[in-house]
Design a protein around this nucleic acid. Structure first.
Lengths: 233, 233
DNA sequence: GAGGGGTGTTCAGGGTTTGTTCATATTGCG
DNA sequence: CGCAATATGAACAAACCCTGAACACCCCTC
């Protein structure tokens, strides 16, 4: 059994077209995921048993064992998140797919960008149970990615998922400035084109109330006027 | 080799129809991008080699060298983001099947607004992962493009967005003289029409107050009478 | 199912920082 | 000395951020 010790999330891409696998994997690689490939349903199940990916991108139309059968089989053993690829809108039996336990579906043709966004989104949702994330420790602030606990000045602080993800993301690149749009893209991840950047503002405020010594004079999460926010270690 | 020193993101628009190029470029210009145009695949590759754009908007149907071939060629050397323009929905299937080396695609007819949104979205993402922002260090002056911090003689100095951009631009090309109009063009961008060159003067003054040892005898940012300003390393 | 707490999102108002303009003083050049 | 370019200071306008509260939603308990 190969343990996935990497900090990066791993994604298994299952499609019978080599070009699709290749392109999707290349893109996800660039996005910071580690990727595996499988050409059909049987190979997919074998790979899941062996590598334990954090998420599976699964084409519905597959030789040997189709996507629905793969999900059914998977669900006997694991709760690994699945994103379905379906060829055309008309063929989408979303009810069937989702009832079988898929977490999301993407209709072909899709843009790799959109798929990556869905992957991030689904991983975020299912984050609560599995994590291979890192632990960060600063002066008076400890962020435990494994247990999703935050400890401020020795006190354990309750942290909702979104706020934790935001804090984690900022703290992962100390001092770097992120715009609201970037944070929406990177932390929220899905369909962010029409979302309100002020969502970020509000979450930052709540975050500050929890981890700042003086909420009126933010020190850890600094505002960079006109540009975004920055975590100060 | 022309260096793209502008702080604005540059976009190369490739389409054989002059009207499309014109409309798209005009809109992107107004949105704060600097734009280049290419009429066919060969011209596109030449432009990429010469200008190194931050993103490429690429029509699939092109004379001489079609969009797919251009991407294939591009990917041998660079990871520059590409947004494909496709004339018909059916062609999108080919995009998926053949050349998903693109980061996104837009189906004609499209609204310039939508295209601009995609451009921004793709750039946000790629900008977040690649640290293309530079760091500059001089004697007693450190400019960190990633964190947007300036450190003068060891002291961290708060720097408003515009002043930082201006300093960054000047310091990126030490000794080179820039006229006020050039700076307006490159740092401010053509987003706001017909600006007052004195805006530059004021920002230079404030900049000097922050980074000069003696504000009355400017050393780092020198005035070149009748010509403009120059950064001295 | 029906409440209830917790979470994520949106919105409008107010305050602050920043960007720009303008009038005036100063500097550099012929 | 005259003219043009640049510097200065202050005031205005715009952009931006924070606050507070309300709404929608999900999950959990009962």
């Amino acid at each position: 059994m190969v343990q996935n010790t990497s900090l990066r999330r791993s994604v298994l891409v299952v499609d019978d077209e080599a070009m699709v696998r290749e392109v999707v994997c290349a893109y996800l690689d660039r996005e910071g995921f580690s990727t595996f490939e499988a050409i059909d349903g049987e190979a997919a199940l074998a790979c899941v048993a062996e590598r334990e990916p954090d998420l599976i991108v699964l084409d519905v139309m597959l030789p040997k064992l189709d996507g629905y059968s793969v999900i059914t089989e998977l669900r006997k053993h694991t709760q690994v998140p699945v994103i379905l690829l379906t060829a055309r809108a008309e063929e989408v039996d979303r009810v069937l797919g989702l009832e079988l336990g898929a977490d999301d579906y993407v209709v072909k043709p899709f843009s790799p960008r959109e798929l990556a966004a869905r992957v991030r989104s689904v991983l975020r949702r299912t984050n609560a149970t599995e994590h291979t994330t890192k632990n960060l420790e600063f002066d008076g602030l400890i962020i435990d990615g494994r247990t999703r606990e935050v400890i401020v000045e020795g006190d354990r602080v309750d942290m909702p998922p979104m706020e934790f993800d935001l804090l984690m993301y900022l703290a992962s690149s100390p001092r770097q400035v992120f715009s609201r749009s970037q944070l929406l893209d990177q932390v929220w991840g899905s369909s962010t084109d029409w979302q309100d950047p002020s969502t970020v503002t509000v979450h930052v405020r709540r975050l500050r109330q929890k981890i700042e010594r003086d909420a009126d004079a933010p020190d850890r999460i600094q505002t960079v006027w006109g540009r975004g926010y920055r975590f100060k270690p």
